[in-house]
Amino acid sequence: MIRKRQNICLLLMEQKKDYLFNGCVCVFHTASPVTFSVDDPKVQLIDPAVKGTLSVLKSAAKVQSLKRVVLTSSMAAVVIRSGQPEHGFVMDETWFSDPSVCEQKELWYHLSKTLAEDAAVKFAKDNGLDLVAINPGFVIGPILQPTLNLTSEAIMGLIKNGKEVFSDGIYRLVDVRDVATAHILAFENPEANGRYCMVGEVVRSLEIMKTMNKLYPSFGQSERYKDSECVEPLPYSVSRAKVESLGVNFTPMEVSIKDTVESLKKKNLLSF
């Protein structure tokens, strides 16, 4: 019965979507499943991401008033490739994840976002749509909802228990408010084009925990990190040049971490 109701709901949305877009000058397509653990990647991640994106674009293409579609993609559609350049390279918008490598490594979320962005770009080109993609990294900052989403749950796990989200301990951090600003600027700026990497800082988890210790010295979990040092340089950085030219001013990492923690505490999701 639940599945049947969901199908009816989706059908009604599909039928009404064209009318919902009437008179719109911009469509922001932000919805896509976000999970790193699935039983059926095609059903749970890939199909919803790709088919959902194309469904929105097909409706958008019918609207004469529409000036632009802003697509929320991901750095997951940027970073996964076979082989890497020399240590210290700079990633930018010319980087694209390789679907075969994503599949080989069973990085299903990365594959879903890569295929969805590829499909969107091709559809937009074939149908004369003005498409701009925003590619955020690991999003932190204050949350609006009363429950945890994947990234807020992951960052809470890191600061509470030192549980790594990524095996290499490297995080491409960006503040959620900066991501929202980038979407607005991508619509408002007529010169916006292509895709934009949204990463404020590339840091190791050690730096996150040292910042935690500085902001919250009584926090027991971060105490062991205060005198630690990481002498190994980061293997790469992400260029901010293109998105800064759009008008984005990145929130400092320390501010983002503090606002993340205060938001989690306010919603009784984190206490210490």
Rank of each mutant, 00 (worst) to 15 (best):
Q84M: 09
G141A: 03
L144R: 05
A182S: 14
F166E: 10
L71F: 12
L173V: 14
K113A: 08
A77D: 05
V90H: 03
V179I: 11
L111C: 09
H183T: 12
R177T: 09
L150A: 11
L150P: 00
F123Y: 15
F96H: 14
A180P: 02
K125H: 05
Y171M: 08
D178W: 05
G141R: 03
L185H: 10
F123S: 05
I170A: 11
E106N: 14
E188D: 15
E93R: 08
E93A: 12
V132L: 00
E106T: 11
L107V: 06
T181Y: 05
G162W: 13
A77C: 07
V179R: 05
V174K: 06
F89A: 10
N127W: 01
I140T: 01
V132H: 00
L129N: 01
R172W: 04
V139L: 02
I140S: 01
Q104Y: 08
V139K: 01
H110Y: 14
F166R: 12
P85V: 09
G162K: 13
S74G: 07
Q104L: 11
H87R: 12
P136L: 02
L148D: 10
L131P: 00
I80C: 09
K160A: 15
T94W: 07
A154I: 02
R172G: 09
V176M: 04
D168S: 15
F96N: 13
H183F: 12
L173A: 11
R177S: 10
C102M: 09
A119S: 15
S73V: 05
V176C: 14
Y171S: 08
E117N: 08
G169S: 14
V90W: 01
K122V: 12
M91H: 03
V139T: 03
W108T: 07
A124M: 05
L150T: 09
P99C: 12
G157L: 10
D168Y: 10
W108Q: 10
L150Q: 04
R81E: 10
S97A: 14
H87K: 13
D98Y: 07
A180Q: 06
G141L: 02
P142I: 04
L185Y: 12
V70L: 06
I159F: 08
A119Q: 07
G162C: 13
T94D: 14
I159S: 07
A186W: 06
A186P: 05
Y109R: 09
G157K: 14
D126P: 00
G162T: 13
L107Y: 09
F187Y: 15
Q145H: 03
A76F: 03
V139E: 00
A77W: 03
W95K: 10
G162Y: 13
V132M: 01
G83V: 04
I143F: 00
F187R: 10
